[in-house]
């Protein structure tokens, strides 16, 4: 999956030269196309269109664009061919889960950039925070939104507000600040905690290199991380790198944030 892959655009044509569909048929056709990840225009002007579909009687609306007849046996095959021709994204190749910044709230503090282990965040040429690698975000993990003191990070597919984009209340802001404070009480941030654990583990591993114990240590660190940020899904925790690697990435992210802030 690459974000540079475009989306296939289809126009459902019911104008001159094509039969008008019954509303239920129109609904089923569009719903079926949406389930395939296609964008559909229900209009008789071409607009942004890769493929025309319709129940064509005579005219094809634009001979330079592929036209596919609804109900033909080759319908799915034609769509698939058009997708390949355009180099378009495959159906459901990626669940679009990534942070969206509310720049009305963001103060450019770089806490999210410093926190994220997966390189989702970066800065533009003006050192302004940006979400640069949406496809590196861990599906269903809203952890970075938890460290934002201004509730400026949204995940539109998240279950609850304000992370889902609902209005931010005073109570939400107080809660966010409290979370940051809790994190501080645990040693600056959760990665500091992991680094400390990592140091202890390293010194112990130098004496006894037992892979089972190493795994147990990692599990302890991840459990601690989960207790600090309870929204992190287990599968994300399970796929996290080793404590040493976490510490290395955290330091790299912190350095990136410092550089962005000009420190």
């Amino acid at each position: 999956m690459a974000l540079s892959e475009p989306i296939l655009h289809v126009a459902l044509y019911e104008g001159k030269g094509a039969r008008a569909l019954a509303p239920s048929e129109r609904f089923e056709t569009i719903r079926s196309l949406l389930s395939k990840g296609v964008a559909v225009r229900r209009a008789d002007d071409p607009g942004l269109t890769d493929v025309w579909i319709g129940d064509f009687v005579s005219l094809v609306p634009d001979p330079t664009t592929t036209a596919v007849s609804i109900g033909s046996d080759a319908f799915d095959g034609h769509l698939s061919e058009s997708r390949q021709k355009k180099g378009a994204a495959a159906t459901a190749s990626w669940k679009p889960w990534f942070p969206v910044i509310d720049y009305d709230r963001c103060t450019n503090c770089m806490q999210c950039l410093s926190f994220c282990l997966f390189g989702v965040y970066g800065v533009d040429s003006d050192r302004k925070l940006q979400v640069q690698n949406q496809d590196q975000c861990k599906t269903n993990c809203p952890a970075c939104s938890r460290v934002c003191p201004e509730a400026a990070i949204m995940f539109p597919k998240y279950k609850a507000g304000p992370i889902n984009g609902d209005l931010v209340s005073d109570a939400d802001l107080q809660r966010e600040k409290m979370k940051v404070d809790i994190s501080s009480l645990l040693g600056g941030d959760v990665y500091a905690l992991l680094r400390e654990r990592s140091e202890k583990a390293r010194s112990r591993f130098s004496k006894e290199r037992d892979s089972d114990k190493a795994l147990a240590e990692r599990q302890k660190c991840l459990t601690k991380l989960a207790s600090v940020a309870s929204d992190i899904p287990p599968e994300v925790l399970a796929s996290l790198p080793s404590p040493e690697e976490i510490a290395r990435r955290a330091e790299a992210a912190a350095a990136k944030a410092k550089a962005a802030l000009g420190l």
């Binding site: 990840g37 964008a39 559909v40 225009r41 229900r42 008789d44 002007d45 539109p156």
Partner: peptide, 9 residues
């Protein structure tokens, strides 16, 4: 006339 998209995100 309208545009329908699978996922705005």
């Amino acid at each position: 006339a309208f545009e329908a998209v699978a996922d705005l995100c």
